[in-house]
């Protein structure tokens, strides 16, 4: 598989009255073609800003993508795209689904028209019965209805003529997905697509995203704060904390062999249905650091149970555990104490 997207040393800041908020502080990851990865973290850890940067949606000012950041889409840096290239890339090649579908959809346009708008903008031709013909508004509308059917909206013909406020929460999210998939993007970013929804609807939407990903071989970046949601969708997981990546690896490695105290704490903080014990939940005391003045050392040092002197002084480098599993923590340093830590610190070779 080839790399579809590479993000290299991405740094994004927002200039506010209080000073410079360093939302993303050197994030590097890549997405392969047809692969689903997840970015997990608390609110304010910079995961949404990362997503917006990839879509070219950072508004400057107040935002600023720092010099030295690179976002390579098929080897080309999208930060250097001109307006025309950008508008082709955004919507045509990549698409995003937002958390709040009602705010993201246009309330004054019917859902069908919003899909048509996207199609007319990005596609010149369309396949009808195996032949390529010029895209007209009428054909686009037919395609829009087809898209609505594909995402599982009943009575798609009638529904296409309705406005977003006539849809329920889960249906709006489906409509968003239909718009996003209309131009068959190669890259889909789902920014907390199910956070505002009920569990039953959440399961439906996640199934839909998974099916479409397999069907159309789209790469998906799933952004969420809920580790449960990603367990059966993402192949690889990136854990972010206050603008940094603290751990990355295969889903199995992250869930069964977490190597960073933050990942361990996140996993323990979720009460599980399949476990019977009723002991106290492991909570992470304190709150994430202020990104106006990020701590000098490890960002998690202020809340970490295993904090050592060096953690407050110097940011740890990533330790490689093989198979793409990396964690940035001083506990993996050869000189660090090996007792009382929540994970095995030895480098694992399989």
């Amino acid at each position: 598989m080839s790399k579809l997207l590479e993000v290299k040393n991405l740094r994004v800041s927002y200039h506010t009255y209080a000073g410079e908020v360093q939302s993303v502080r050197g994030v590097t990851f890549d997405v392969e073609e047809g692969e689903a990865i997840a970015i997990v973290g608390e609110s304010g850890c910079g995961k949404s800003v990362t997503a917006k940067s990839i879509m070219g949606l950072i508004k400057t000012p107040p935002g600023e993508i720092k010099a030295g950041s690179e976002i390579l889409y098929r080897g080309e840096n999208i930060l250097n795209y001109d307006k025309k290239q950008m508008s082709h890339y955004r919507g045509g090649e990549s698409a995003i689904i937002f958390q709040d579908a009602l705010a993201a959809l246009n309330p004054t346009m019917t859902v069908g028209k919003q899909i048509v708008e996207n199609l007319m903008m990005h596609r010149k031709t369309i396949m009808v019965d195996g032949k390529e013909v010029k895209l007209t508004k009428r054909l686009a509308m037919q395609e829009a209805v087809k898209m609505l059917k594909m995402v599982g909206i009943p009575n798609a013909e009638q529904r296409a003529k309705q406005y977003p406020h006539e849809y329920s929460g889960g249906m709006r999210q489906r409509a968003m997905i239909a718009i996003a998939f209309a131009c068959q993007p190669k890259l889909l970013i789902a920014d907390e697509p199910t956070t505002a929804l009920d569990v039953t609807i959440q399961a439906q939407i996640m199934d839909l995203i998974k099916d479409l990903q397999k069907q159309l071989n789209t790469s998906v970046i799933l952004i969420t704060h809920d580790l449960g949601v990603v367990a059966n969708v993402a192949k690889r997981i990136v854990v972010m904390y206050s603008g940094n990546i603290v751990e990355r690896g295969n889903a199995r490695d992250i869930f069964y062999h977490p190597k960073h105290p933050y990942t361990c704490a996140l996993l323990e903080a979720v009460p599980r249905l399949d476990l019977k014990n009723k002991q106290e939940l492991a909570s992470i005391e304190g709150t994430p650091p202020d990104l106006l003045a990020p701590p000098k050392g490890c960002p998690f040092s202020t809340r970490c149970k295993y904090c050592m002197e060096i953690c407050c002084e110097q940011a740890p480098a990533a330790t490689d555990f093989g198979d793409g599993h990396e964690a940035a923590c001083w506990l993996h340093h050869p000189l660090a104490p090996k007792d009382d830590v929540p994970f095995k610190t030895e480098v694992r070779h399989e």
Binding site: V199, Q202, A203, G228, A231, R252
Partner: peptide
């Protein structure tokens, strides 16, 4: 039953097992 089986569990193996037995609710309330 449907409500319980819709809750995601942060464990890839358990999720994979549950996939077969999951009761899926169609439609909205």
């Amino acid at each position: 039953k449907a409500l319980l089986s819709a809750i995601p569990i942060p464990d890839p193996d358990v999720e994979l097992q549950r996939e077969q037995t999951r009761i899926k609710l169609e439609g909205d309330v």
